[in-house]
Each structure stands twice: as C-alpha cells, then as structure tokens.
Design a protein around this nucleic acid. Sequence first.
DNA 1: TTAGCTTTGACTAATATTGACTTTAATTAT
DNA 2: ATAATTAAAGTCAATATTAGTCAAAGCTAA
Lengths: 155, 155
Amino acid sequence: MANQNVSDVIEQYLKALLEADEQVEIRRAAIAEQFNCVPSQINYVIKTRFTPERGYVVESKRGGGGYIRILKVKVRSGCGLVEWMIERLPRRIREEDARVMIQKLYDEGIVERQTGNMMLSVLSRQTLNVGDRETEEHLRARLMLAFLQSLQYER
Amino acid sequence: MANQNVSDVIEQYLKALLEADEQVEIRRAAIAEQFNCVPSQINYVIKTRFTPERGYVVESKRGGGGYIRILKVKVRSGCGLVEWMIERLPRRIREEDARVMIQKLYDEGIVERQTGNMMLSVLSRQTLNVGDRETEEHLRARLMLAFLQSLQYER
DNA sequence: TTAGCTTTGACTAATATTGACTTTAATTAT
DNA sequence: ATAATTAAAGTCAATATTAGTCAAAGCTAA
C-alpha cells in the first residue's frame, strides 16, 4: 500500500536487508542521506521498530569507523519463546506491543489462528478501555501473562 | 435511493472502492476535503456504517503518513449459539458462569481447545482480581463480549 | 413536536520529523 | 605520549502532521 512516511520506508529497507542476512551493519549518516532525512531519524526508527520485543538486538559504536548493527534474535522455533516472553514481560503493555507479541506467537506456530484473533480482540484498546491509560496497560500486561501461562501448561 | 446526505455519499464512495478491492486506505483529511466536510465526519461515517456487524474492520494510524484503512471481513453466520450468548450476556459474570459458557462453546465445537484454555485462564478470578468483586465481574463480562465477538467475524 | 440522525469544531492523542547539543572513538599533530 | 582535531553515533525537546473524541447545534421524518 501507499507508504507515505519515511520511517516505514527505512524500516522496510532494513528488514529487507535482514531477510538476506542474520545481521546488518549500517552507517547512520549514509542511510540518512540515502533516504534524505536527518541522522537522528535512524535512531527513531530503530527505537520504535527494532526493539527486543520484536526480536531484534542493536549494537553500535561512535567515533571514527562507527556503525549501527542490527541482529535478528534467533528464537529456536517455538521452544522457549513463551518462557522468554514471560520473563521479560513488562508491567505495562501498549496495544501495539501486544499485537506484535501475538503476531510473533502466530508466526512461530505456537498459537492457532482462532486463539490469536481472540487475543487481539480481548487486548484491544477498545475492550480494555478503563479510565486512565496506566490502568489499561497494567491490565493488558496481566491478561497477557495469563494468556502466555495458558500456553505453557498446554505443553 | 434518493435523499442523500453527505454521510451516505461518503459511505457509497468508500463501498465502491471496496468493490474493487478487499481493503482500502484513505487519508482522512483528503476525503474530508473531497466531500467538503470536516474531518471528523469521516469518523462518524465509519462509526455508523463500517462496523464489524456490517462486515468491516477499521485500522488507522496517526502522525505523519497517517491513514485510515477499511477491510472487508466475512461474517460467520450460522453459529447461533454465539449470537444467543451475546444477546443475553449479563453485565456481570461470575467465574463459574464463564466456565460454563466456555465449556459449552467447546462442546459445540465452536472454540478450539487452545482458545478455550486461554479464555479460562484469562477470565479466572486470579487473573481478573482487581479490588472489588463488582469491578471484577464487570470486567469479565466485557472480556467475554470481546471473546464472543471475535468468534463472529473472520478476516 | 420530538427522537434520532447528521454536521461542526474545539480539544486531545499519537506518531513522525528536525535540529541543537552531547558523548565517544579514532586519527593527527606536537 | 599527549593534546587537539575529526568523525562518527546518542539524546532530547520542539515542531509538524495526522487521526480520535465528544458534545453542542442543526436537520428531518414520523
């Protein structure tokens, strides 16, 4: 579809590179120039789209010969992913992050389509809309934990 | 077919687009300008005419490059049990009643094992334990509704 | 007449973009 | 060696760009 914003374009570019390789190393200034944006936008893209929750680790070095390196976290198919998620489950979760987690579980074949759709519905902003944002996100985290735990017991 | 207010015209315009494609992506401000109305009228049109009941799901993003995306969904009709449950869903539900409902759905082959387990886990007292009993049961009812609704529609 | 749609717009929220300033590391000059 | 310079990347807050909410005002059909 029509991708009008630069951050999405950069995200897709980097993910395409990561398709071909397990990791990718870039020079921030070069990418910024390539996409005609300021260098700090690269940081924005990385911070919002290449998070650990989404399965990436980022390393970098400043100064001469500096770089930014993005690595795909290799999660051995299924095995351990649920435990991994439970371990680093934050106390608050935003809808968007919940979506990403559920998608990952589906991609890994851990949750079935029906289950995934249901979680999306239950964890949506609309459903969990209870007064303030903080309460909502705490609740979402609690429900996500229950969800993950139910996946554990099943195996 | 005659008396057309602006909302109806916009509705038809969008539905025409959806004839050609399974989904359509618009910029709110652009459509508003095209039909010479305020942007929030687009929200009104969507809220009143592109509901899940009518077979649509809507996603959106704000900020630069933002959009509103409308998708057609298949309405799974024929499972009367789900509609029946939704119709007489009380405002408060006790854990025991939730269990019974889920069991029934499982027995009828409407929900899969994994989905059912997940719902049991999420709707448990333990998970929903938020202060007072009344709040807990209201919340359980809300989640149960989202749960049932997700069974009605399929993307 | 009036209940229920529709239209409007002021205010809010989310996301993206930009740039000034900071920090770190390598290279060069003394 | 040490200091100065240069070459990266990082941070953060201001600004820009969208879309969402809500309630008041306007309309329309029964």
